[in-house]
């Protein structure tokens, strides 16, 4: 399709203006975006995940995640009859290349996508000695890479293994819930490319967000609830063997 930038603008004035704004990378948040109006989380439906790895690839491309480190990853669980406490888990290359080889088809097999749980009472921000990582007013755990010391205490404190030290910046790195997208009205890269809709961005402060109805009608869990982290990534259909 031959379409010029001008034609694009002519075709879709509103969308194009929005797009211009998104592309501009304006340092300010979207003018209509108020941090106090949002409280972000995510919904993951394990029953829908097909382990294609699209989210892992998209995340790496969207956020320039270095090879061998993961802001999001997929685990494949294999649980035989009574071994709920001892599942066999694997995550080759974080599931970035999918899971090409089939596993033992006996027992129970399923995929679990993981990412930062954007905890409300996050242990990682608690331990940061200088205030280089924090829960933003809209509930996203962010890292200030221009202020981080690289002491790695936060990496130790995260019960979910979601943090790493970025070898390019030598600072702590993690999922930002695509903060640069969600503040401009887009969804996260992982949710954008999820073919089955297993990942949904959720705004817990927005009364119109379908998350509320979903949470009301489904049995959802969070990871490691005994850690009391206030995790905001909700899992539907999660097996008890998941950790």
């Amino acid at each position: 399709m031959d379409i010029t930038r001008r034609r694009l603008l002519a075709l879709l004035p509103a969308a194009a203006v929005a797009w211009e704004f998104v592309r501009a990378g304006t340092p300010e948040l979207s003018p209509n975006y108020k941090t106090s109006d949002h409280w972000w989380g995510m919904l993951i439906d394990i029953t829908e995940c097909i382990g294609c790895g699209s989210c892992v690839r998209a995340c790496a491309q969207e956020n320039d995640v270095p090879e061998g480190y993961y802001r999001t990853w997929i685990e494949r669980y294999h649980v035989t009859d009574y071994a709920i406490e001892r599942p066999h888990v694997e995550s080759p290359n974080g599931g970035k290349d999918g899971f090409p080889l089939d596993q033992d088809p006996s027992g129970k097999n399923f995929f679990v996508p993981k990412l930062c749980n954007h905890c409300a009472d996050s242990p990682c921000t608690q331990v940061c000695p200088v205030g280089a990582t924090f829960v933003s007013p809209d509930g996203v755990v962010l890292v200030d890479k221009n202020y981080c010391l690289g002491c790695r205490y936060c990496v130790q404190a995260c019960p979910y293994g979601c943090r790493f030290i970025n070898p390019k910046t030598n600072t702590a790195d993690k999922c930002t819930l695509c903060y640069h997208r969600i503040t401009k009205g887009l969804t996260t890269a992982c949710a954008e490319v999820c073919p089955t809709g297993a990942r949904q961005l959720a705004d817990l402060k927005n009364p119109k967000d379908p998350i509320h109805e979903y949470l009301r009608t489904h049995s959802v869990q969070i990871l490691k609830p005994h850690m009391a982290t206030g995790a905001k990534v909700f899992y539907n259909g999660m097996d008890g063997s998941v950790r």
């Binding site: 969207e62 956020n63 200030d144």
Partner: peptide, 30 residues
């Protein structure tokens, strides 16, 4: 400004350019 961190950091994180356009933009033309 907002808590025990650099308030400007929020805008700095948000300023990152996007890589995925999002389907609404694609669907505008295609």
């Amino acid at each position: 400004q907002y808590g025990h961190y650099r308030g400007d950091a929020i805008a700095e994180v948000a300023a990152r350019p996007v890589a995925h356009a999002g389907h609404e933009v694609c669907e505008g033309c295609h």
